[in-house]
Each structure stands twice: as C-alpha cells, then as structure tokens.
Amino acid sequence: MTGADYNFAYLDEQTKRMIRRAILKAVAIPGYQVPFAAREMPLPYGWGTGGIQVTAAVIGPDDVLKVIDQGADDTTNAVSIRRFFRRMAGVATTEHTAEATIIQTRHRIPETPLAAGQILVYQVPIPEPLRWLEPRDTETRRMHALRDYGAMQVNLYEDIARHGAIAKSYDYPVLVNGHYIMSPSPIPKFDNPKMDRSPALQLFGAGRERRIYAVPPHTPVRSLDFDDYPFTVQRWDECCALCGATDSFLDEMIMDDRGSRLFICSDSDYCRGRQGAGEAAE
C-alpha cells in the first residue's frame, strides 16, 4: 500500500465534505454531539478511528502533525497514526507541541500550553457523558435538549456519599459554554482545567459511536462539582524522576518485584524538553 493509490489523507472527497459539515455544526454548537457517517478505517475501533477521520478532514499539506497516546509520542498508537498520515497525506510530523498545527491525542492534553491557531483532535471512545446513567440514545438526546442534568449531579453526589469525595478521576464531565454537559474523553481530570478558555480549537471524534463535537477557542469549560465539594485535580508527593517536574501529570512505574517505584512525566515531549534545558544549563 502506498499513499499514491489513495486520495490525499485517505478519505474520499465526499466523505471529507460530510465530516467537514459535521465539524462546522459542532463548532457552532459547542459541546453538542453531531452525528456523522463514520467510515470504516484501516484500523480497529478503539484505536482512534474517530480522531483519524477528523484529522483527515481538517489536515492540509502545510500542516505539521503531532500524535500522542497517553501523552507519549513513541507508543504504538501514536507511532502508527503518525506514520499513517505521513504516508497518506505526506505531511510533516513533529514531536514538539509548540511546532504542531494539529495535535491528535489519545487521553491527554499536552503540558505545554496550546496557542491560537493550533487544533487539538481528541480520540473519543464513548462521547455520551450520560451513557452510564441512561443507555437509550433517545433519552440522552431528550436530556440534553431539556438540559435535564439532575441525574449527573446525583451520580457525583453518590460518590461523595460513598467515598467522601468525587471519585471520578478521568473522563470527568464538563459543562461547555454553560449549556451542554460533555465528555472530555478519557483524559485525566488533571487536564480538565486546560480545556477552559483554551486559545486552541478542540475537536472530538468518536468513530464507533459516530459523533463529532467541538469546543471553540476561548470557550468556558467548567468541570462539574458542588459548592462544598469543589473540583480538584490530582497531586503527587513525588516529582518526575527524569526531569524533576512538579507540575506535570505523572505515570507510576513499577521498577522491580519488591515494590519500588518511580514517577515520570506522562508527556514525553515536555519531559525531554525539560531534561534538555537542564543539561544546557549545566
């Protein structure tokens, strides 16, 4: 298979137009899930088929693409999607957040603050934040239409009643522009505050569930909480073992079978950048 046998960015032009129209409506109605006719992609559901279709519809020859999987540029999903677009669109790719015009992500927002003009494309497994409370799509649509969101607040309250705190640590629901409740995709709640009034355009693609939604730049995104139980993010007592960062999301690494462990940055580009800066200063 070579890129020359396919249209630019793999999808045919009519499919791109259909996805592009869905993206435009998603941008006009922040947080609302626009149905779209997701195509079968040359990789299984759950590997980012929604995100890839959004990226393919948006990307042009002048774009610079970065792909991350759980924050890292060098994991299987990120490597194969980056290679897919290098082959199918011939675009430049990068691992540096600041150089990218489009960043496709699975389950993280980069630590380096995003800038105006950048587009963040999320891979989304379950786009419907109310799905675990109400399995019927007809009902969740009605709930969104009426903003009948009491069940979500009760769900968070039950956490407090059982655990003394809201136990949800990823895919933490947000209210977009004061209107729709939205799933931020399974990013850690540590990343939720980065969505709020971000200067970048945020696009979300769910391939299996056939939904696209968006958060335009400078749009208020509030994590749901209660006055007496305000939203908080994860904190660590440790710092990154490689770069010493205390402000980034840390992954726990088990080092041996005697229980010793290390914490390192989940964002590989951020960590490498800090290590490089540290060496330059020495």
Partner: peptide, 19 residues
C-alpha cells in the same frame, strides 16, 4: 485543484466559525 483548494476553503470557513 479540487482536493487542496477545497481543504483550504474549508479551513478558512472553520477558522471563521471558530473565531
């Protein structure tokens, strides 16, 4: 150039509605 001109026009429209 139907493919690239369409992509550029769409991006202008996307930027217009996003900003």
């Amino acid at each position: 150039d139907p493919v690239f001109d369409a992509q550029r026009s769409f991006r202008a429209l996307l930027d217009a509605l996003a900003r």
